[in-house]
Design a protein around this nucleic acid. Structure first.
Lengths: 147, 147
DNA sequence: ATTTTGCCTATTGATTCGATAGGATAAATT
DNA sequence: AATTTATCCTATCGAATCAATAGGCAAAAT
């Protein structure tokens, strides 16, 4: 399971992406429409701002807006930001790699091989899920439903 | 990341599977060859026994042995046993399903769609990884390396 | 000047994780 | 029968992580 923090982050970013051209959007607005605890969301957005993913405007009529090309923000990177590695074992992660004490030889460890396969497939899907794609998908799912 | 408990469980079961025909195997042996804290492994094995996955023999020359067809024990079920759902969101799990407060309509929620894809792919790989297959894979990896 | 909104620090309670202690019980060996 | 060698069971521990909130400071618009 991903943490609630990450789940909130994803929904908040998708929200900002959807309303990219409406000027700064307030914490309160996002919190209410996405059902996220306001104070918690606040902490998340400040963090995203410090990392450069979003920018903010202070004072009246202030709020947040996305600071990058939507194609450059994907679910794999967002998950890694707060929850760490996507791989299920330390020995199959890229950025957080650590050898396992359990196996003597990584090359011949079948356990590792399986979790590596899972990781590679997961990362592939999550990398493809950038904000631009997600919005497209959402539109296409809505169209499908109407019919 | 899966918990250490689950990781230990997998390695212990693979160990038992490999030595299926050597009679009961002691905790101490498994703990030492697989580098698992003995007392921790003890708790795990008792649990596996109560769940019917392994059987035990008390007293001198006692130990544990696998109680099922190796094909019936796969990584998906083992992970679920201690770590719960494999899906990354409550709304994409099967046994632990819960609706998300964030999205109004599951059918058109793109976030859900992506995590559903990840889950389905992961479960597919992890289901295929039953103990019989894992042992086969390990042998084939060893053969490959020698060449 | 006042209101509105983001920014920052600190804290809290709950839960989970990983591991160990200490002894009871059962079976085989002597 | 006594001893040894295992598993079985209960209980507990500290550390870490999670989710959320409190309370006030700083900046910008009206």
């Amino acid at each position: 399971m991903i943490s609630k923090k990450t789940k909130y982050t994803i929904h908040a970013l998708v929200h900002l992406a959807k309303h990219k051209d409406s000027g700064p959007i307030q914490i309160k607005t996002i919190a209410e429409t996405e059902n996220i605890p306001k104070k918690f969301l606040e902490a998340i957005l400040i963090d995203l701002r410090n990392k450069g993913y979003v920018a903010s405007q202070k004072g009246r009529n202030g709020g947040y807006y996305i600071n990058r090309d939507l194609k450059e923000m994907n679910f794999a990177d967002i998950i890694r930001m707060f929850d760490g590695p996507i791989g299920m074992l330390p020995c199959v992660t890229y950025l957080y790699y650590e050898p396992c004490e359990e196996c003597e030889d990584e090359e011949t460890c079948a356990v590792r091989k399986i979790f590596k396969d899972v990781r590679d497939e997961s990362v592939k899907i999550l990398k493809a899920a950038n904000l631009a794609e997600v919005i497209k998908t959402e539109k296409s799912l809505s169209r499908k439903k109407k019919k």
